[in-house]
């Protein structure tokens, strides 16, 4: 039995704005095993970042609110914890890095002070001990001459170096789980390669579980063992990386894979875009959220939201097409005729 580190059950998060309730996350259930890297992919506004922030309980409130659901880390429900206890868990048990390394560091404190703050709060390390540990951390994330770098301020660091510092801070207390929200989106390709390599290396060495939120399928293919595809606040498909890439079941996943050009293709292939746009989550959605853009849309898709169901070992999808296949296969249709 694999060790489940994090388990999210039926998480629903909404933002209450002037125009009404925006249901950003609509019933997300997922789990992360120990030592595993899970990728959450989807377009902007699909709820992937809100899911991560909800797990960390960092949803700005108001206007945001976790409506229902549970987030349990080692069986402990984080959503029921008092704020103080949650603060202890953030950083100590779960670390998070953000997209923009420019704004996530305090510009008036030196890097040493900022890492020291984390160490003092969670580990009670002070003075020399904290400094030694900080040097160790910077070395671990591959920052040259760490002793001098500790005394410097964020503006002395380049984008890639800042993201390394952020990773060092997130890993300061050896958390079990690292949530990385688009960690390489703001970086250049060659720097992105460095950071991905670093994260992969750290996961293997420290056995940290990673949730990687990204829209870049290439990064997922490189780093993740399991993939979750989100659309309009719901998980529409999840499974092992190979299953998702080689045997996608949901038309949206297929569409995503077909719409990106590959560097290694020799023949020029026409890109197949997904027509239309993601839905506005402020309006109530009827049926499958993807149906207006789906080329396989059926009558049922307009009326009812499909449940997520197993399509193979460690592979789930939320699509009526799977039901249709099954209905064709077995005697369900026969059963229907009898009912008639």
């Amino acid at each position: 039995m694999v060790d489940k580190l994090l388990e999210v059950e039926d998480l629903r998060t909404s933002f209450f704005t002037y125009a009404g309730e925006v249901k950003a996350v609509r019933g997300v259930s997922l789990h992360v095993n120990k030592g595993e890297a899970v990728g959450i992919v989807g377009e902007s506004g699909c709820g992937k970042s809100v899911t991560a922030l909800s797990i960390m309980r960092l949803i700005p409130s108001p206007p945001g609110k976790i409506v229902t659901g549970s987030v349990s880390l080692y069986g402990k429900d984080l959503l029921k914890l008092p704020i103080k206890a949650m603060q202890k868990i953030r950083g100590k048990e779960m670390g998070m890095i953000f997209q923009d390394p420019m704004t996530s560091l305090n510009p008036v404190l030196s890097i040493g002070q900022q890492i020291g703050e984390v160490l003092a709060f969670h580990e009670g390390l002070k003075g020399k001990d904290a400094a030694n540990r900080s040097v160790e951390l910077l070395k671990m994330v591959g920052i040259p001459s760490p002793e001098e770098r500790l005394r410097q301020y964020p503006h002395h660091f380049s984008g890639g170096m800042r993201q390394r510092v952020m990773i060092a801070m997130a890993l300061a207390c050896s958390p079990k789980l690292l949530i990385a929200d688009e960690p390489t989106t703001a970086l250049d390709v060659t720097i992105q390669a460095q950071i991905i390599e670093l994260m992969n290396d750290l996961r293997e060495r420290l056995d940290t579980s990673i949730i990687l939120i990204t829209h870049d399928l290439g990064v997922v293919a490189k780093l993740c063992t399991r993939v979750i595809v989100m659309y309009a606040g719901q998980i529409i498909e999840q499974g092992s990386t190979d299953e998702i890439f080689y045997n996608p079941k949901h038309p949206y996943t297929m569409g995503l894979l077909k719409s990106v050009p590959r560097l290694d293709e020799i023949e020029k292939r026409k890109l197949v875009p997904i027509a239309g746009h993601p839905p506005d989550l402020i309006s109530s959605l009827k049926g499958c959220a993807f149906n207006p853009r789906c080329e396989y849309a059926m009558k049922i898709c307009l009326r009812e939201t499909p449940e997520i169901m197993d399509v193979g070992p460690d592979h789930k999808a939320r699509c009526w097409l799977i039901n249709k296949e099954r209905a064709n296969e077995d005697d369900v249709i026969q059963g229907q005729k009898n009912v008639k």
Binding site: V189, T190, Q192, A193, I196, D216, L217, G218, V219, V220, A221, K222, T241, D242, F245, Y246, L257, V260, R262, L263, D264
Partner: peptide, 11 residues
Amino acid sequence: SAIPIPDPDVE
């Protein structure tokens, strides 16, 4: 070589 390719086997 830095550009990731959306294909796990290739990667």
